[in-house]
Design a protein around this nucleic acid. Structure first.
Length: 476
RNA sequence: CGGGAUGUGGCGCAGCUCGGUAGCGCGCUUCGUUCGGGACGAAGAGGUCGUAGGUUCAAAUCCUAUCAUCCCGACCA
């Protein structure tokens, strides 16, 4: 991490790859475009997963699992869907030593296989709603990949719900983008803009796509989670009908929503600095690391029971910690190592501290180091972690505010987004206008935020009057 | 698939212009001293220089082909 974080994407990109590898989150695999998630990175993902899973269950969802291999013909049943995914499919043509009659695709997403099953399960309005989520891996053969942000195979969760009415399905898709927002802000300490995707950017097969957009350290946008209202598209494609209270046959309404291991990338790029990762306490695999310091057995015997006393209270508080007792490494090395890995709090305990009944408490976020009594530490550790969590969100909100400009002309748009940054603008342009802007500036409409000022303004591109404001930015 | 670059111990690189049979830093092993901000010393292990041809007495170095990787575009959670 010798180089600082700079807005220029090449340097930033190098910094990112460096952090991922040095913090031992992930590594390149022998298969191009695929990565190996290492134990530390996987522990982070598991914390993300556990918290999301809890939120899904609290909103009435249940987990299930569907097969990874999907008959090729299934993908073709929904016109937009196949068009969107065809170029990036991995296809299995042989099995059991023989050529298959029909090739199987490795799921790029599971709408089709799930809806083929929903056809069997849904007959009456009494069978609805179905609120199923699955944790799975998917494969999309992207042309360019980056660790966590876009890998050929990635881990995610995908919720697939079926409803009797459009209103209910729309409400569900809104509810779930709200869950993602809650998770992003309150667990990841990552502020997001919630909104609707434009026609150009929405999911292949959706009526509407809702998104949470976050600002990364280089001020570019990252789509961090999506929720789709699918209308009756998949119900029609798979002929899924139900009998309503009036004894009529009707197509089922659907939603789907997902977040992926991309969130790990989002975490790195939202909070990282020159020293490496900074993890929010709620998701960090270790919220604290304890570094015992001693030079001989006598000192060790003095220090270790004191450390044990501290970890006993951490256990009682239900905190996640790690005691770094590697014998051959110097304390200084360990300090840097754990800073790279983003552990929020570091506790140093040496013979001096034991004598004084104190300990050294260092904060990763601010870099502050304080000598406090053991008693005081025990009383305040939970609050310290809460404060760090809060400060992380607050500082990123401020960062986003600083780098978001209201713009009124095309030139201003270019200036505001050229080196990263969000531009808020009145917009009444067409899909073609949007594509032209993308070609000319590499900047796209990230979303039409749910939160609108309600004021009327002039579209900077077409000159038309409108009340719609959108966010433009360069994105990953 | 277009544009640019790079392939040399585990990792990062130098050497190539001007051919003479491979070197540095990190890491690794052993021993000793260290240990409160990336410790130090000594002694070691490890590479037929991406691959295949060619030129030459002699090729990491020059020529040709080929493969791979990375970066920039098109694609995208």
């Amino acid at each position: 991490m010798s180089k600082g974080v700079t807005p220029q994407s090449q340097d930033y990109s190098k910094w990112y790859t460096d952090v991922v590898q040095k913090a031992e989150l992930a590594d390149y695999s022998p298969v191009k475009g695929c990565m190996v998630i290492r134990p530390y990175g996987y522990a982070l993902w598991e914390n993300i997963k556990a918290n999301l899973d809890k939120m899904f269950k609290e909103t009435g969802h249940v987990n299930a699992y569907f097969p990874m291999l999907i008959p090729e013909s299934f993908l073709k049943k929904e016109a937009d869907h196949v068009e969107g995914f065809a170029p990036e499919l991995a296809v299995v043509t042989h099995g059991g030593g023989k050529k298959l009659e029909e090739p199987l695709v490795i799921r790029p997403t599971s709408e089709t296989i799930i809806w083929s099953m929903y056809k069997k399960w849904i007959n009456s309005y009494r069978d609805l709603p179905i609120l199923i989520n699955q944790w799975a891996n998917v494969v999309r053969w992207e042309m360019r990949t980056r660790m966590f942000l876009r890998t050929t195979e990635f881990l995610w969760q995908e919720g697939h719900t079926a409803h009797a009415t459009a209103e209910e399905a729309i409400e569900e898709s809104h509810k779930m983008i709200g869950v993602y927002r809650d998770f992003a802000e309150n667990f990841m300490a990552m502020p997001v803009i919630v909104g609707t995707k434009t026609e150009n950017e929405k999911f292949a097969g959706a009526v509407d796509t809702f998104t949470i957009e976050a600002m990364m350290g280089d001020k570019r946008a990252l789509q961090s989670g999506t929720s789709h209202y699918l209308g009756q598209n998949f119900a029609k494609a798979f002929d899924v009908m139900f009998q309503n209270e009036k004894n009529e046959q009707e197509y089922v309404f659907a939603s789907s929503w997902g977040v992926s291991t991309r969130l790990v990338g989002a975490l790195i790029m939202t909070h990282g600095d020159d020293k490496g990762l900074i993890l929010p306490p709620k998701l960090a695999p270790y919220q604290l690391v304890l570094v015992p310091i001693y030079r001989d057995d006598e000192a060790k015997e003095k220090v270790m029971p004191y450390v044990k006393d501290i970890t006993d209270s951490l256990d009682a508080l239900g905190l996640r910690y790690h005691v770094d007792s590697r014998e051959t490494l110097s304390p200084g090395f360990k300090f840097n190592d754990w800073e790279m890995k983003g552990v929020p709090l570091r506790i140093e305990v040496g013979p001096r501290d034991v004598d004084a009944g104190k300990l050294v408490c260092a904060k990763r976020l601010s870099g502050e180091k304080a000598i406090i009594t053991k008693k005081e530490f025990k009383e305040t550790v939970v609050k310290m972690l809460d404060d760090i969590q809060f400060e992380m969100l607050a500082s990123k909100k401020a960062f986003r505010k600083e780098n978001t400009l209201d713009i009124n002309s095309y030139d201003e748009l270019k200036a505001a987004t050229e080196n990263g940054g969000f531009a808020r603008a009145f917009w009444a342009g067409s899909s073609d206008d949007e594509k032209r802007i993308q070609e000319e500036t590499k900047t796209t409409v990230r979303c039409i935020p749910f939160e609108q000022s309600g004021k009327e303004g002039t579209c900077f591109y077409t000159g038309k009057k409108t009340t719609t404001q959108v966010i433009f930015a360069k994105s990953y």
